[in-house]
Design a protein around this nucleic acid. Structure first.
Lengths: 100, 100
DNA sequence: TTTAAATATTGATAACCATGAATATGTGTA
DNA sequence: TACACATATTCATGGTTATCAATATTTAAA
């Protein structure tokens, strides 16, 4: 909803550490301490990045005891790719009748 | 080719003005002066943004007299969306057998 | 309660970036 | 040549952001 919000969501993915988080979560959820050691960044920095990814809707957090388990939001990821498509696909006027 | 390069390309799209450029170019090529007046930004700023979009491969520039005509790179856009998918699609190990 | 582990928040700082004024370069026309 | 227009580049600046040290909060266990 709005270019400003879209720019903010894309910016959430425009960081090397956050891309690494997305790759690390491809095969399922992981806790913060695991991500922290895998990425080799400090705990406050990881917490900062996870907040940005969650705010963008790309990642969801699930609390389990003293751990927070993060995973890719399937719905958020689809919405993100749809949004990206709306800026990178060339519109030929009508819509989805295709190019064949 | 590399997370750093991917982050740089995504960052190219993570700006409100550059998203507006992408929308303005959806229906075909436009010269810089047209984009400049449509977006309401200064000429140096537009030139700056167009360089970033071209470097990211999302836009191509074609010179025609004293004008530069910009358009969305169809190939670059596809590659961009494929790259985005590689970070936002969850790999279940094998591939496309689905989630049903 | 105390202790320890995981996470979040605050504060400071350095690096990055978007912006526009001034200027330079390129291009067509008179 | 001179002039006007379009674009690129340089430079300075204010705003944003990634980073970590220090600290606070949350949770489980002793």
């Amino acid at each position: 909803m709005g270019i400003r919000e879209d720019a903010r969501r894309i910016k959430a993915l425009s960081d090397e550490s956050r891309l690494a988080v997305m790759l690390a979560l491809r095969h399922g959820e992981k806790c913060g301490c695991t991500l922290m050691s895998e990425l080799g960044i400090s705990q406050p920095t990881l917490s900062h990045h996870m907040k940005i990814l969650c705010d963008a809707g790309l990642v969801v957090a699930r609390k389990d005891g003293k751990w927070v388990l993060y995973s890719v939001s399937a719905e958020g990821a689809v919405q993100f790719r749809t949004m990206i498509a709306s800026y990178t696909e060339q519109g030929n006027g009508s819509g989805s009748t295709g190019e064949g």
